[in-house]
């Protein structure tokens, strides 16, 4: 595992920098549907069959009502920008400066991503701007990224 807490203020500090490959998502069985969906270009979420709560990350029960009657579904991929930073921290697989964002999906859940398809500046990245999911290959995994929506959702 990469050292996830090395000194943030010293670029090029050695831990986690032994190679340029981006970190791969930890494999957990409950998340297989999400990552396999991403390979097909689908953003997979889960919804409770009882209380209809849509949620993420995946769990084999509803975090709102604890029911085990849950199903997966494909989200619209529409989202808005909830918050972001523009990272200047050297990180394998990423070229600073690059955005790290939390987006709010149309279905309700939030997820972390990178905003692509626009300048990585505080002018181009406006809170609450509409976004659309795109899928990109990143070192062996297909990851959901978001870009500014081309037309109003």
């Amino acid at each position: 595992m990469v050292d996830t807490q090395r000194d943030p203020t010293r670029p090029g500090s050695p831990a986690g920098q032994q190679h340029d490959a981006p970190a791969q998502p930890l494999a957990i069985p409950e998340a297989d549907d999400f990552w396999q969906g991403a390979q097909r270009g689908e953003l997979r979420l889960q919804r409770c069959s009882v209380c209809k709560h849509a949620y993420f990350p995946p769990r084999p029960f509803c975090p709102a009502c604890s029911s085990r009657a849950v199903e997966s579904f494909t989200a619209t991929g529409r989202a808005t920008l909830y918050s972001f930073i523009i990272s200047h921290v050297p990180t394998p697989g990423h070229t600073p400066p690059y955005s790290i964002a939390v987006v709010e999906l149309e279905e309700g859940p939030r997820m972390m991503t990178n905003i692509v398809g626009c300048p990585q500046t505080s002018k181009a990245l406006a809170l609450d701007m509409p976004l659309q999911v795109v899928f990109r290959e990143r070192g062996g995994a297909t990851v959901p990224l978001f870009e500014p929506a081309r037309s109003a959702p």
């Binding site: 595992m1 996830t4 930073i85 990272s87 790290i100």
Partner: peptide, 23 residues
């Protein structure tokens, strides 16, 4: 975090703890 944050480059406190600030 290891599944759904680290792949997006959020690997250290400076790229995680800071995220809510703009909002």
């Amino acid at each position: 975090s290891l599944q759904f944050e680290v792949p997006f480059g959020a690997t250290v406190p400076a790229t995680k703890f800071t995220l809510p600030a703009m909002r």
